[in-house]
Design a protein around this nucleic acid. Structure first.
Lengths: 177, 177
DNA sequence: TAGCTTCATTAACCCAGGTTAACGGTTTTG
DNA sequence: CAAAACCGTTAACCTGGGTTAATGAAGCTA
């Protein structure tokens, strides 16, 4: 039986209202969440009060703080819904034991993790190799739905810049187009 | 039987001389490599000829281009040895079939991939949230052995800056210390 | 030993993005 | 409806890092 089905049969569905948090940085939270519907943002809160958006997550994604779920440490980031969202909540122990029981689940999980690594690698590449303007264009092309639902501040903090700089970049891109 | 042992029994050991490449960006290469000894760098070659160092890898690491090995596409980066290195080479198909055959191998692989995801997440966090100077200090603390064997140019390109900027940062840090 | 080449440092100048603040438009709330 | 809060834009000024180029210190090699 495939991973998605197995997760749904062994977890509970939770609803997160708009702007509500699924968990906070610093908390303990041993769950992973499979997104049924909605849109959320994962973000870091820095010592100086600034925020950095780590990622936007939408339907079909599997999210959770690995440091908390797998390493039994504290969540390294906050997870907050941007739109009302429904998530299947499952503990890591449960998921790993399901993988122990079924080769198919284990394989599916391996493929999921490979995909996850590739996504993170892509993000890492963009942060390392592209200018803020190039990252903005890439985001617009690859996640147009995010541009709709998300404030300029969140988009800027995802790109690693300030909303002021994003406004300038938008103007520059429009002019150059 | 554990993953490391299984890999060694089902792969061949290859030696890479200093400065030689294991594979090049754009090539097809369906292998993963388990590092027995040595030090290598993974780097992107950009359109304009610039390089960006994605990571340094040393003994105990499992590396390879996921886009090439798993997605059957081209390698997204170059892998070059900085010091003479010995690597166990295994195809992804082989590794996945070994995971199919043994629950322990599958579990070990899942844990490896979780660790890999966490490492990438840490890198992503640093690129998104820290200044170049903070990243330099973090590298010095977390990978002191790299600072020994690696040229200033490579360290700078790992931090996402130029060697000139790194020189300035070193001076600044020394002065502040 | 002299002449390459490679590499880190430093200086001068430039530019992208940060910071602060003002302005206007929209939404929320009393 | 008015006041407040929120948001994106723009301007002015500042700063960290990029670019180019000169200098010097090792290491090779003839």
């Amino acid at each position: 039986m495939e991973l998605e089905t197995v997760i749904k049969r062994n977890s509970e569905l939770v609803t997160i209202e708009k702007n509500q948090h699924v968990f906070f940085q610093g908390e303990r939270n041993g769950y992973l969440y499979f997104i049924e519907e909605g849109l959320l943002r994962a973000y870091y809160l820095l010592d100086n009060g600034d925020e950095r958006v780590k990622s936007f997550v939408s339907a079909g994604a599997l999210v959770g703080s690995l440091t908390a779920a797998y390493k039994k440490q504290e969540c390294s980031f906050n997870l907050q819904s941007i739109l009302r969202s429904k998530l299947w909540r499952i503990s890591v122990e449960k998921l790993l034991s399901l993988a122990e029981e079924s080769h198919e689940v284990a394989s599916d999980l391996i493929f999921r993790l490979l995909d996850l690594s590739m996504k993170k690698e892509q993000r890492e590449y963009e942060l390392l190799s592209l200018s803020a303007q190039e990252r903005y264009i890439s985001l617009r092309e690859n996640m147009p739905e995010v541009m709709q639902s998300v404030s300029q501040n969140n988009i800027a903090r995802y790109l690693g810049i300030t909303p002021v700089a994003l406004s300038r970049i938008k103007k520059r891109v429009k002019r150059e187009a």
